[in-house]
Design a protein around this nucleic acid. Structure first.
Length: 852
RNA sequence: GCCCGCUUGGCGGAACCGGUAGACGCAAGGGACUUAAAAUCCCUGGCCCCAUGGGCGUGCGGGUUCGAAUCCCGCAGCGGGCACCA
């Protein structure tokens, strides 16, 4: 008998699907739709295992939904702008455009070899002017709607990538791509007003029920809503007042100092005439953002000599410090310190000998003796030492004090957010040009829409230093669209997260030349029903897209708040790591198993077996998907990806696991091949009634598999779905023979159910079973409820909660019958040992527990 | 430091609402076929014991319940997110 030839079979079916345009879809409002999307790839060169997992997961969903009768949109494209293309230009002298399109060609071929059910006609790359011209047009609309502004601000500067980073792109004080410590610079930047939607972005999270709670929580934390009060303190001997934000206005009577950020305007003003202060400020700003500096930095302050009046007791004067722990970007850049009820303020007060006055008394504490030691008291309690607030609890005191501040005209309730506006200016070449012109006379002028797109210049000199567009000899020179006099183009390009903030909408209508997309098309397809990708975008891409969708809505492009109805975040692919004696990393292929449990390289030197870690090039523990697909076929890779771990957990790549998947494909092939000659023809109807023995058992196994696999696939329990199909396979092998129509039904069910996971093998077997219609065009199966029902069931019997026996009894039998049968069971009688039961708990069709 | 999640055989993992713990697989051991190997097939398998039976078992210690991997309280370990956020 021939063996399964995965290479021939996969090529054959991929060709047939393409020729028959099996996976091409049209907007068709008469049919129910389902939009499955995987986070589109950056064309870095070659696909990695994370891509394979991502697209396999998406393809399972797409194929299932398609078989279930949905009109399924499942597209693929390229997140094609980005810095690595410029890196390649510097290192190899290749144009970023050529490098990018070359990578796309290579990666497209790799992805196509996976046999995904994708409508490839919809493919696009974001670096194509046909795409980014619409982005420029939408940007201009957002400018008009007041959702965009330009201002000078402190920015995160990545010294390696030579560009600005958004706050979301700084991880632990380092650039998210380069890993270099981020510096602070002051630059004029374009911003999207994401903060204008902060309230809605937060509130709507509660309605995203098909998102992982973890992602919603991370976005909630990132948005960082704080309720409190803005309070104005009178400065002694100065006309202006000092404003602070506090979430604990109730502790105002416990205030003992004020503190300003080192770059607060008042600090800057005072430092101008105070060299000592100026030196202190310089030292604070130098400390900067590196991890180590932050962790070891102690609370330090500089007394400015200024004094503030506590607005609730103007006779109390508070010293004004400049302190290194106050952030200029948060709140007002100034605080009042209440050491008794804030740990950081307490540390500061102890260091500078400031009073510590408790104003919240813990429940049951004695007001005469209660004192603050080394730890501030943060809990609830009763206000004291606070005049008109005395006796109130904390929430009541907050509202009471805010009312009083408002009456005095020196404060009001306020909500502060952690999230900042999204800075999108990047000083790079390989990005979407920002369609603006700077004119000496007219200021900043938008490029008129009829002059779009603003194309990138082709002839560019990329050296890795500075902004290539800025250095280009002619590109930036352009007449002012308003007055016609010589002016200068904006030379910054967009953050590439702008492109990925709306690509899901473009897939609905990817070739539209006049608009980003047709309203009708997005009204039909959006939101994305199932989005799948990595958790690393929990607050980057996923937050930006939610913002951008709202901004597009308010500019009239679509009628939608949330782009992604369902989100699934997959785990990482991991692999064992190996190191030689010197600590250098070794590839898995360089390591041979050693009988002593250790391992050695080909040249016989000992090897340190390291931890299982995320696949990464630096640790040499990657496996190239193309090599696996070449050797075993795409179906093997797909099956392995799905069967070993639940998709949201990390998956350890092992050769043994791949072999296991490969063996199963061949086993299923053999089982079908061995039996298909003897089967009745296609369309034979399997008997439902009058079945008994092995035939009844097989029919039940088949229908139980149909029900359980469907359920498992719908809940993303793909590892279980694989296990359940394997169970059916085992049942088919155990079937001694008999009714051939039942056997055909079982074999067809196994093939049908495995198809979303291993589509090539399934099509091949489907054809060999005699079908002429594609399996991909064949509807999903529905289990016969009559075969799911059992008339007699096995019921475990416990004595005092310990399982002692089991009885077989009619399903739905009443408690009296079950109880009698249980007590009559010999094993139960033995366990009772003559004692009479005090109580018998019968849970119908579940269990019996005899209590003595 | 704060917030979240996880902890089940040698390993990956099943166990839906509290109801037979360990499905399915990997690795292992034994056997069959073969001159041999590969491939394939069959058997065994949580741990322990006076073994047709019994005891103990889901990180550890308590609790609730007829019954707990599942619920509650405390602790430990691992992973992740945020972090001078006022």
């Amino acid at each position: 008998m021939s063996r399964y030839n995965s290479r021939a079979s996969e090529a054959k079916w991929q060709r047939i699907w393409e020729e028959r345009r099996t996976f091409e879809v049209r907007t068709d409002p008469s049919r129910p739709k389902y939009y499955v999307l995987e986070m589109f790839p950056y064309p870095s060169g070659r696909i990695h295992m994370g891509h394979v997992r991502n697209y396999t997961l998406g393809d399972v969903v797409a194929r299932l939904k398609r078989a279930q009768g949905y009109n399924v949109l499942h597209p693929m494209g390229w997140d094609a702008f980005g810095l690595p293309a410029e890196g390649a230009a510097v290192r190899r002298g290749v144009h970023p455009r050529d490098w990018t399109w070359g990578n796309i060609a290579e990666m497209r071929a790799q992805i196509r070899s996976m046999g995904l059910s994708i409508d490839w006609r919809r493919e696009f790359a974001t670096c194509d002017p046909a795409y980014y011209r619409h982005e420029q047009a939408m940007f201009l609309d957002m400018v008009e709607r007041g959702l965009v502004y330009r201002r000078e601000s402190w920015v995160n500067w990545d010294p390696v990538d030579q560009t600005v980073l958004a706050n979301e792109q700084v991880i632990d004080g380092r650039g998210w791509r380069s890993g270099a410590p981020v510096e602070r610079r002051k630059l004029a930047q374009w911003f999207f007003k994401i903060t204008a939607y902060a309230d809605d972005l937060l509130a709507a999270l509660d309605r995203l029920e098909r998102w992982p709670e973890k992602v919603r929580l991370m976005q909630r934390n990132w948005l960082g809503r704080s309720e409190g009060a803005r309070i104005a303190f009178e400065l002694v001997g100065r006309p202006n007042r000092l404003e602070v934000f506090s979430t604990r206005p109730d502790t105002l009577f416990g205030a003992s100092f004020m503190a300003l950020a080192p770059d607060h305007p008042l600090t800057t003003e005072l430092a101008a005439s105070d060299p000592c202060l100026a030196a202190f400020v310089a030292e604070c700003l130098r400390g900067g953002t590196s991890e180590a500096a932050l962790e070891t930095m102690e609370k330090r302050g500089f007394d400015t000599g200024l004094r503030c009046r506590n607005p609730l007791s103007p006779d109390r004067l508070l010293p004004v410090y400049v302190a290194n722990f106050v952030l200029s970007e948060y709140g007002t850049g100034a605080i009042f310190g209440c050491p008794a009820h804030d740990q950081r303020d307490l540390d500061f007060a102890r260091a500078y000998g400031l009073p510590v006055v408790p104003v919240v008394l813990p429940l049951g504490a004695d007001p005469a003796s209660f004192a603050i030691g080394a730890e501030a008291y943060l809990g609830d309690g009763t206000l004291f030492n606070s005049r008109f607030l005395d006796g109130l609890d904390v929430p009541a005191a907050k509202s009471r004090v805010i009312a009083e501040l408002e009456r005095l005209g020196c404060g009001r309730g306020e909500v502060t957010w952690r999230i900042r506006d999204w800075g999108v200016s990047r000083q790079r070449y390989w990005g979407c040009p920002i369609p603006m012109v700077h004119c000496a006379a007219c200021g900043v002028v938008p490029v008129p829409k009829d002059q779009l797109p603003v194309l990138l210049p082709e002839d560019v000199d990329i050296t890795g230093v500075g902004n290539p567009l800025e250095r280009h000899p002619t590109w930036k020179h352009t007449p002012c669209p308003r007055c016609g006099r010589p002016a200068r183009r904006e030379t910054d390009t967009f953050d590439t997260f702008v492109e990925s903030s709306w690509y899901f909408a473009r897939f609905c209508d990817p070739t539209n030349p006049d608009a980003p997309f047709d309203r009708g098309a997005v009204a039909y397809w959006l939101p994305v029903d199932q989005y799948i990708g990595g958790i690393e975008h929990a607050v980057l891409h996923l937050l930006y897209s939610r913002f951008f969708t709202r901004a597009m809505r308010d500019c009239g492009y679509l009628d939608l708040d949330e782009p992604f109805d369902g989100l699934f975040t997959q785990g990482m692919i991991t692999h064992r790591t190996y190191q030689d004696e010197q600590g250098g990393w070794l590839e898995p292929q360089q390591v041979v198993k050693d009988e002593a449990g250790g391992l050695r390289t080909r040249d016989g030197r000992p090897v340190r077996v390291g931890r299982v870690e995320k696949m990464s090039k630096s640790k040499l523990n990657t496996v190239d998907p193309s090599e696996i697909i070449e050797a075993y076929g795409a179906d093997t890779a797909r099956l392995f990806m799905l069967s070993d771990s639940p998709p949201d957990r990390d998956l350890e790549w092992t050769d043994a696991g791949v072999d296991g998947a490969w063996r199963y494909l061949n086993r299923l092939w053999r089982i079908v091949e061995e039996r298909r000659e003897r089967l009745p023809p296609v369309g034979s109807v399997a008997a439902r009634a009058g079945l008994a023995g092995a035939e009844l058992e097989l029919a039940r196994q088949t229908h139980r598999a149909i029900a359980s696999v469907t359920d498992a696939l719908e809940r993303f329990h793909f590892n279980k779905a694989v296990a359940l199909v394997r169970e059916l396979t085992n049942a088919i092998e155990a079937y001694p023979g008999g009714d051939g129509a039942l056997l055909r039904e079982a074999l067809e069910a196994a093939v049908r159910l495995i198809e979303p996971m291993t589509p090539h093998l399934a099509e091949e077997l489907w054809e060999r079973l005699g079908h002429t219609r594609l399996l991909a065009d064949t509807p999903w199966l529905v289990a016969d409820p009559a075969l799911l029902a059992q008339d007699r069931i096995v019921l475990p019997v416990q004595v005092n909660g310990r399982r002692r026996s089991e009885i077989t009894i009619a399903k739905g039998a009443d408690s009296t019958t079950v109880e009698a049968a249980a007590l009559a069971d010999p094993a139960v009688r033995r366990a009772l040992d003559g004692r009479s039961p005090r109580r018998v708990v019968v849970v119908p069709d579940k269990i019996v527990n005899v209590v003595v």
